[in-house]
Simulated scan of single mutants.
Amino acid sequence: MPSITRRRTANVGRPTSAEADILAATQRLLINGANFTELGVQQICTEAGVARSTFYSHFRDKVDLLVRLAAAFTASSFDFASAWAPSDGVERLADTFLHVVKVYREHAAVRRALAEVATYDATVRDFWSAELDQFTDWTIALLRAEQEAGRAPADLDPVSATRVIVMGGERALVAHVTAEDSGSDAAFARELALTWWYGVYRRPADHSK
């Protein structure tokens, strides 16, 4: 499997206690239906049990807070996805996607806030684009390595194929965790894996590895 250098657009190291309290409080408020744009810093501080000055000692503003929340979410997704290699086969890919679905379900409120704020804030929009780029770069590298090894056809266009499965897959993940309950997660993850495996990776119908 090719070596991929991950680009991190935000610090996702272990947060301090107060920082963790603020992040957790914000996520709780979002899960409970708060609109991020209308969510005030004081409301976040009250939920977290910290002073307003404490908030600003850890975060520049609310956008910085959202980016930090989202960076932890995307780092977890990427860690699961990038642990898989084509030699692991389609069943392991289905397991990988099931883990990713669970991450998306856990952070659905944060993903919703990202979509909301990205419509008017260039920082968030650029952050999210960069986060998706790491999935894109990783997938393109995998497909090219498969071509070089003779396991994928020479006429496969890795860039176009990646655009379909990364962008399309991400939108499908959001739609799934928004509209469906967790009982259907395994079936969804398996169908996503089969789409990648037999569609993009071009494995024959009787080939699971």
Score class of each variant (00 low, 15 high):
114 L>N: 06
4 I>Y: 08
158 P>G: 04
3 S>W: 09
51 A>N: 13
109 A>L: 05
148 E>G: 01
75 A>T: 10
117 V>T: 05
159 V>S: 08
25 A>N: 08
135 F>T: 04
10 A>V: 13
4 I>V: 14
167 M>S: 14
197 W>M: 05
174 V>D: 15
18 A>C: 02
169 G>Q: 09
122 A>G: 07
166 V>F: 06
203 R>F: 05
53 S>A: 10
66 L>K: 06
38 E>A: 11
1 M>I: 01
160 S>L: 12
104 Y>F: 14
145 A>M: 00
168 G>W: 10
189 A>Q: 11
118 A>M: 07
62 K>I: 02
151 R>L: 04
126 D>G: 09
204 P>R: 09
161 A>T: 11
158 P>L: 06
110 V>M: 05
10 A>R: 12
125 R>I: 03
158 P>C: 04
12 V>I: 13
190 R>K: 11
161 A>S: 13
107 H>Y: 14
105 R>I: 09
1 M>V: 00
10 A>N: 10
199 G>C: 05
121 D>F: 00
109 A>D: 07
160 S>Y: 09
144 R>T: 08
184 S>H: 13
25 A>L: 04
38 E>W: 04
120 Y>D: 09
156 L>A: 08
68 R>V: 06
29 L>T: 01
80 F>G: 02
73 F>L: 12
89 G>M: 03
23 L>D: 01
137 D>I: 12
165 I>L: 11
